[in-house]
């Protein structure tokens, strides 16, 4: 099991009056590709932050890849995330002051456990596999197209071969052609690395790419804000 949630509660205030998430039980199996959808403000991003270990749950059990995140301190969760979880956002996936290569390399810096010897070659291979030429990789990020930037973001999040990839509406700002290209590249690599995918999107036309689609409202008994 990659994600195993039992009686998870998350409230913004310490007294627990404003419960945003209350999930009795929810699982994602290893290698599974899950599409999560729901209205804005429903707590999707918060759930992703809990599963990646950025936030800590107020109550309940949260197990990711066999590790109890709810029992870890902040430093341990940071280390866990750096080594095991890849993250792709809708926008601002890359540091604008670094080039493509440096962005991917920085991700490896934080996941020291995952950094293999000869990683430079591996970064170049992965970027090349994502149709990014050497000259594109040396360019400042702002000089790349949105589609190219999203492909660099995939490389950045998958270079460390994470067990879980979290994608928070990564296709929202892409046109249809780029969106299809993005999904194709992403799924190829996910399948190749046997990575579990938790994908958040409003776009239900993407449903065929996933093993299952879940509405957050269906698993969450907390209050929508």
């Amino acid at each position: 099991m990659t994600v195993n949630i039992e009686n998870l509660r998350y409230a913004y205030d310490k007294k627990g009056n404003e419960t945003l998430l209350d999930i009795p039980r929810w699982n994602i199996a290893k290698g599974e590709k899950v599409l999560l959808h729901g209205p804005s403000g429903g707590g999707k991003s918060t759930l992703l932050n809990l599963i990646s270990g950025i936030l800590r749950s107020s109550e309940g059990k949260l197990e990711v890849m066999g590790e109890r995140l709810d029992k870890m301190n902040e430093r341990e969760r940071d280390r866990f995330r750096a080594n095991n979880v890849g993250y792709v956002f809708q926008s601002f996936n890359l540091f604008p002051f670094l080039n493509a290569y440096e962005n991917v390399d920085l991700s490896l810096y934080f996941s020291q456990d995952a950094k293999p010897k000869g990683s430079k070659q591996e970064i170049e291979n992965l970027l090349s596999e994502l149709n990014l030429s050497k000259s594109d990789c040396a360019k400042p990020i702002r000089k790349l197209s949105i589609g190219q930037q999203q492909r660099v973001a995939i490389a950045r999040s998958l270079i460390k071969k994470p067990g879980l990839l979290i994608a928070d509406e990564p296709t929202s700002s892409l046109d249809e052609e780029n969106r299809n290209q993005f999904m194709s590249v992403l799924l190829d690599l996910i399948n190749e690395q046997d990575t579990t995918l938790l994908f958040v999107s409003h776009d239900l036309s993407l449903r065929p790419h996933f093993n299952r689609a879940e509405a957050l409202a269906g698993i969450n008994q907390g209050k929508t804000i």
Binding site: S52, I54, E74, R75, D78, R79, R81, A82, N83, Y87, F89, S91, F92, N93, L94, F95, L106, S107, F110, S111, R156
Partner: peptide, 14 residues
């Protein structure tokens, strides 16, 4: 703000 969020996502500590 976004930069900090990204740093956190790739495993940087506060």
């Amino acid at each position: 703000e976004q930069e900090i969020k990204l740093f956190r996502a790739i495993g940087a500590s506060p």
